[in-house]
């Protein structure tokens, strides 16, 4: 099965140079693809570079952050090489983004209607009435109660869940081909979370969008995503379609994430959180970045960084265990029925 990819990120490096000799390599050689019409989930602990990768795609990383290397191919064209004016035509039009904090992501001094129409006016040649009409349609589309009233309201008059719906309406205004959702539900309470995710899923099918969904929650991934990229310390450590990932996760970090989650499909006696902490950006391990926390790590892991290698089913993993060079004994990283 070959799928066309709407987005291909290749060896992307986005660094923050704080001063002469302190560089935070927030994104350090990230590669993954978003297949057309599919949802890619991106998981990983806080600080692993998920958001910075996403912001790099829109070239919206704040100073002193800078894309120093790599390619971001959107429909085959490299966004890294685009001029700022060309990027502006893509933002909000072909690629849209929604953010984690609905409470602060809308401008407090402009009405909801005005903020939706702004995107429409930037990218489409609409007269006022058409824009008004379309803004109303968008509010209906995202399922906001009494949409007519909302157009003239200000963000402070709306609840968090409604604001996130407004953000989605803004993002969808120009029928984007790719929607990037950076933890869109983290700040919302559980019932609203489910509604928003359901909404994104529905709209994706309806509008034939591709979606990049950043989340901490593997449960959300299982429910909404087709593919998953697992990130750790600025790198992708595993990439697979969602079934493969949950059935046979390969990277010890992925396994760690899965074991720290309650699951319904297999019996587990207890949750085992991953021990240790994410390495500080200034003290990155020489070899595999997960080695200090990995129960299987050997001398090789401490010394050399493994590559992201393709396995069967299109699964990719960055781990020495699955290479010929592996110097340890044979290990079983994942045992699904371990505790039954």
């Amino acid at each position: 099965m070959t799928v066309e990819n709407i987005l291909e990120i290749k060896n992307l490096k986005t660094y923050f140079s704080l001063d002469k000799d302190r560089v935070v390599k927030a994104v350090d050689g990230v590669s993954y693809v978003v297949p057309k019409g599919k949802t890619l989930g991106i998981v990983g602990e806080s600080g692993s570079g998920k958001s910075i990768t996403a912001l790099s795609v829109l070239r919206l990383v704040d100073e002193p952050g800078e894309i120093v290397d790599g390619e971001i191919l959107f429909k085959g064209e490299d966004l890294v090489k685009k001029k700022v004016s060309e990027m502006r035509k893509i933002r909000g039009n072909q690629i849209s983004m929604i953010f984690q904090e609905p409470m602060t992501s809308l401008n407090p001094v402009h009405s909801v209607g005005k903020q939706i129409k702004e995107t429409l006016h930037i990218h489409e040649d609409l007269i006022r009435q058409e824009a008004n009409h379309k803004a109303l349609d968008l509010l209906k589309l995202v399922g906001i109660p009494s949409p007519e009233k909302r157009l003239t309201q200000y963000p402070f008059e709306l609840s968090g869940g409604m604001r996130q719906r407004v953000m989605i309406a803004i993002a969808l205004a120009c029928n984007p081909e790719l929607l990037i959702a950076d933890e869109p539900t983290t700040a919302l309470d559980v019932t609203i979370q489910a509604q928003i995710l359901e909404l994104i899923k529905e709209l994706q099918a309806e509008l034939h969008m591709s979606v990049m969904l950043i989340t901490h929650d593997l449960g959300v991934v299982a429910e909404t995503c087709d593919f998953v990229a697992v990130m750790y310390a600025g790198k992708v450590v595993e990439y697979a379609d969602v079934d493969t990932l949950f059935e046979s996760p390969k990277h010890p970090y992925t396994v760690g994430l899965l074991n720290s989650l309650p699951r319904h499909d297999i019996k587990m006696e207890e949750l085992t959180p991953i021990k240790g902490m994410v390495p500080s950006p200034f003290e990155m391990p020489e070899g595999c970045r997960f080695a200090p926390r990995c129960p299987f790590a050997t001398a090789l892991c401490q010394e050399k960084l493994p590559d992201l290698e393709k396995k069967e089913n299109g699964q990719e993993v960055r781990c020495w265990i699955y290479t010929d060079e592996w110097d340890g004994e044979e290990v079983k990283v994942y045992e699904p029925n371990a505790t039954t």
Binding site: L58, L60, D62, R88, K89, I90, R91, G92, N93, S96, M97, F99, E101, T104, S105, L106, N107, P108, V109, H110, E118, T119, I122, H123, M167, I170
Partner: peptide
Amino acid sequence: SQDYIRTARAKGTKERVVIYRHALRN
């Protein structure tokens, strides 16, 4: 440095408009 400025940029708004319509007003 507020979130809504990033939102404005993510819409494809021109930098001048981001500054005057979105930032200055606040």
